[in-house]
Each structure stands twice: as structure tokens, then as C-alpha cells.
Amino acid sequence: MAQEKVRARREALGRHALIRGDAMNVVRRMADRSVDVVVTSPPYNIGLAYRSYEDRLAERDYIDWMSVICAQIARVLKADGSFFLNIAGSSSQPWLPFELITRLRERFVLQNHIVWIKSIAIEETTYGHFKPVNSSRFVNHNHEHVFHLTHKGDVRVQRLAAGVPFTDKTNITRRRHAIDRRCRGNTWFIPYETIRHRKEKYLHPAPFPVALPTACLTLHGYDENTVLLDPFMGTGTSLVAAEQLGVRGIGIDIDTRYVCVARRRLRAALANPGSDPGPAMDIDDDRADDPP
């Protein structure tokens, strides 16, 4: 198993629920068809240094484990719900994301495949950031996958709400658009802010920016009754996005420290709407090991 079994502990913060526990055990106790949107980034199985995850299983064991969890996600996801699965391979394991998504054909339709671009070079200028690799064989990995999975492939998405303004404004009238928005497409350039120290990542090896779950929620569409689930919450980025958009979030993680960080970020977002406390908050003191 990639996660040890622990007794779940649940805490309510505003409209949200933070749960310290094993994702499988918690999700299997959730009601059928109770979640509108799932946005999550599970362990990638590429040897990242998580505190409480074993991130180097045999590939078949990892895919089996994820398949079982995703079967439970399929059960709790509403008929018109969306499951956004963020995952990446590595230079030495390039097939892993595709092996997993192929297995999930048993449960879902792959409605959209979005490429999250973290860094891009345009002519001689680089935009965004990436983690460099020291290799004479491989180029740097500057993107990850966001697989948009649905039950039947027929979920209506909010293409313009998640879109961008026209560069050529004449397209607004020529193409008969009511507003200055066009579809963003399936390549999303969402860069990280500059990170120079582990504390700026909340001591987590693989956080994603708030803009990523925000874009997923916006593409699916949301209102005050929307329920978001992140079964691998990490430091709570998806719940911060949920709070900023006014939807209800349910976040699960097995690691006590990450749940504590998520709690602090969410409390700050509740106290100061639209904010995220960022790396300046103190997450390295003894209280970070307190249970939620």
C-alpha cells in the first residue's frame, strides 16, 4: 500500500472539511453521487520525498492502488461531475501517466486532456519555472498532465468562463462573440512563483499553484452548492481555491503536518477573503505535529 492505514480525524472550517486519514478509507465511506468536482494530484510514484507516502512502488502495484481509489471516486462523483487528475511521469518513467489513464477507461471517459505548462521558452526568453534535471540524455520536464475524466464524456463545460481575452479584438464581432473571451484550449500556462527554499513550498515536495484548481473549477462551472473533493489534499491548495470561489471543499491527507499547513492556509483565507498566506507563515514549529 502507498499509504498506511490511520484512524481518520475530521475538522470543519467554515463550509469546508479537513480530514487527516487514508484516502481510500475515507472516500469509501462517502455517499454515492455526493461530489460535483474532484481535483487532485496524487503521489506520482517517481520517488518524491513525501513524509508519509511511499512514492516508489512497483509500477503495476501503483496503478492497481490508484485504480481502486479511482473506482471509489467514480462512485461518489455525480452523474454530471468532473474529475481532474493531475499527474506527471518522469524521464525514466515516461509511460506511467498513460498506463494509469488507460486503466481508468474501465471507469471513466477521458473528456479532455489538458497539458499544464509550467515553463516555456519563446525565442530567447523563458517564462515560468521548472525543476532542472542533470542529464546528458533527457531534456527538462516543463509540463504535467491534467486528465479531465467524466462518466460519459457529455459534461457541458464553461469554455469561455475559463477562457482568455482575444488578442485581435476584431475577432469579437467577426466571430459573433457576446464577450471578449475565447476558449483557452488544452494547453494551460500556469507558472509557479519563484521558489528558493523548501519552506516556500510549505515543506511539501510537489505543491501546485492555486490557479490550477481554480482553472479546473471554472472550466467545470460552480455555484454556492458545488462540492469539491481533493482526496490527496497535501497542503490544501484545492481548498484555498474552493474558498476563494465560494464552494464547499473536502480535503483528505494522511500526513499530519500537511493537514496542519492546510488548516492554517484555509483559516487565513477565511479571515481574509481572496488571500493565501503564502510561504511567510510559520510551519516549522512544534505545533505542526499536532493532530487536527
Rank of each mutant, 00 (worst) to 15 (best):
M1K: 12
M1C: 12
R9T: 11
R10S: 15
E11G: 10
G14M: 02
G21F: 05
R28M: 13
M30S: 04
R33F: 10
R33K: 13
S34Y: 08
S34V: 08
S34H: 06
S34T: 10
S34K: 07
D36T: 06
V37Q: 02
V38H: 01
V39D: 05
P42N: 07
L48F: 01
L48M: 06
Y50F: 10
R56Q: 12
E59K: 02
D61N: 05
W65R: 06
V68C: 07
A71F: 03
Q72G: 12
V76Q: 08
A79D: 15
A79G: 15
D80H: 11
F84I: 02
A88I: 00
G89D: 04
W95Q: 12
L96R: 00
L100P: 00
T102A: 13
L104H: 02
E106M: 12
F108W: 14
F108L: 13
V109W: 05
H113M: 09
V115W: 03
V115I: 11
S119A: 03
I120P: 04
I122Y: 10
E124C: 14
G128E: 01
P132W: 00
P132Q: 01
F138N: 03
F138Y: 12
V139P: 09
H141A: 15
H143F: 09
H145I: 06
V146C: 05
V146G: 03
F147D: 00
V155E: 02
R156Q: 15
V157S: 10
L160I: 12
A161G: 15
A162M: 04
A162N: 06
G163W: 06
T167L: 15
I172T: 08
I172A: 07
I172F: 02
R174H: 09
H177K: 13
T187P: 05
F189W: 04
Y192N: 08
I195S: 11
H197R: 14
R198E: 14
E200G: 09
H204M: 07
P205S: 08
F208R: 00
P213F: 04
L217T: 05
H220W: 08
Y222H: 11
Y222M: 03
Y222R: 04
N225I: 13
D230N: 04
M233H: 09
T235S: 13
Q244F: 11
Q244M: 15
L245E: 01
G249Y: 07
I250E: 04
I252K: 01
D255Q: 07
D255L: 06
C260P: 09
A262Q: 07
R264I: 10
R264Q: 14
L270N: 08
A271Q: 10
G274Q: 10
P277I: 06
P277L: 05
P279I: 07
A280I: 12
D286E: 15
